[in-house]
C-alpha cells in the first residue's frame, strides 16, 4: 500500500517512541485462540477472518505489553454511592419500546427457540 514517505517516517518515530516494533509478536495468537474468544463474544468468524485476526492480534497484543512498564499510581479515593428513592416517571409505551425489535409476540421481544 502506497504510504507517502513522510507518513512512514512518522509512524516509525511513533513506534520507537512507544516501545512498539511493527511485526514483532511476543504474544503469538493462534486461530484456535481467536475462535475461543469469538465464542465468548458470540461472533461467528469465517476461516479467513480467523487467520487475519490471529496475525493482527499478535501485533496488537504485543504493543499492549508496553503497559507492563506503567508504575503503580495512587488512584483517586474510593467512590461513594449516592442513593435516592425511586420515582415513577414517564416512559415509553410498549409499542414504541418494541418498535425496533426484529420480532415480537404478545407485546414481548421474541427470541430464538430454546433448543
Amino acid at each position: 500500500m502506497g504510504a507517502p514517505a513522510s507518513t512512514r517516517c512518522c509512524i516509525e518515530t511513533l513506534t520507537a517512541h512507544t516501545t512498539l516494533q511493527s511485526g514483532m509478536s511476543d504474544t503469538p495468537v493462534d486461530t484456535d485462540e481467536v475462535e475461543h474468544i469469538a465464542q465468548l463474544a458470540r461472533i461467528d468468524l469465517d476461516e479467513d477472518e480467523r487467520e487475519l485476526f490471529a496475525e493482527q492480534f499478535g501485533d496488537i497484543l504485543s504493543s499492549f505489553e508496553a503497559l507492563d512498564d506503567v508504575p503503580e499510581v495512587e488512584r483517586e479515593p474510593e467512590l461513594t454511592n449516592v442513593m435516592r428513592p425511586d420515582e415513577i416517571a414517564e416512559s415509553f409505551d410498549r409499542e414504541d419500546a418494541l418498535a425496533n425489535a426484529p420480532e415480537t409476540e404478545d407485546d414481548q421481544f421474541k427470541g430464538p427457540n430454546v433448543s
Binding site: A38, A41, R42, D44, G111, P112, V114, S115
Partner: peptide, 12 residues
C-alpha cells in the same frame, strides 16, 4: 436453534 449460536450468526 441454540440462543448463543443464533446471536453469533446475527452478529457475524
Amino acid at each position: 436453534g441454540n440462543w448463543n449460536e443464533t446471536f453469533a450468526t446475527a452478529r457475524e
